[in-house]
Amino acid sequence: MATAHSKSAARIMIAPAVFVLLVWMLIPLCMTLYFSFADYRPMRGVFDAWIGFDNYIRFFTSSSFLSSLMTTLWMVGSILLITITGGVAMALLLDQPMFGQGVVRILVIAPFFIMPTVSALVWKNMFFNVDNGLFSYAYKFFGLQPFDFLSQAPLFSIVVIVAWQWLPFATLILLTAVQSLDSEQLEAAEMDGAPALSRFRFIILPHLSRAITVVILIQTIFLLSIFAEIFVTTNGAFGTRTLTYLVYQRVLESQNVGLGSAGGIVAVILANIVAIFLMRIVGKNLDN
């Protein structure tokens, strides 16, 4: 039984965590908000504390904003498509009876634990490199002209790298969901003569729908802030500049803090839209 005494003790125990997160949320975010209305270019010694919405107007009307938004959408969208369809297929495959299931699962999950800079550089050099990459050797083996992935299809290359990292995550979550499926229901459907495709369409997929939604939301939040993979492969060149990368460049490379901060606020708002949906699902689950 929670007494008044234990309640106040509980409050004291929660306080440090709430306090540090509150400080972490509020101070930097307020500073960004403040800078986003200022003309602040530290390299040139410019600081004008209030220029209204000029930064936002400049950010939205610049051609780099629209292209970075499209790049972000393409990148996140295609990675989601690959990881969700691949993840459902892999999860169903891993749920089948087989020899060495545990080992296969370990093999499939491994890429998720690889440091982003490592996976990006390994793919960039040992697979995509036009002179010495394995893909070039394969092209030559089949008598084809080697293809320079990172300069000819840079967005595709980054999508491959990041999808490889996140497919294990989707697989693992969806496998957990598949395993909670009531097998009697499937057996009954099978005995009633439902073909495999209808069993998938009408029993498995509806059962997975919530897990799929969760995977989409969580991945979207992480994918919106992809950084290292772009940093070590193309450094934002060749149309791989996402919104996150554009803000990074404005803030740290060209040191236009005002403009970059406006972009940062835009990124925060976009991420929050996704977060609201995720919170709803998580919140509902807390009640049961």
């Binding site: 997160l21 975010l29 807390l286």
Partner: peptide
């Protein structure tokens, strides 16, 4: 409180980079 804590995880890093 729990949900609010989670929401801080959703904050994009670039949003607070310069500060």
């Amino acid at each position: 409180v729990l949900l609010w804590m989670l929401s801080t995880k959703m904050l994009p890093a670039v949003g607070v980079l310069y500060p």
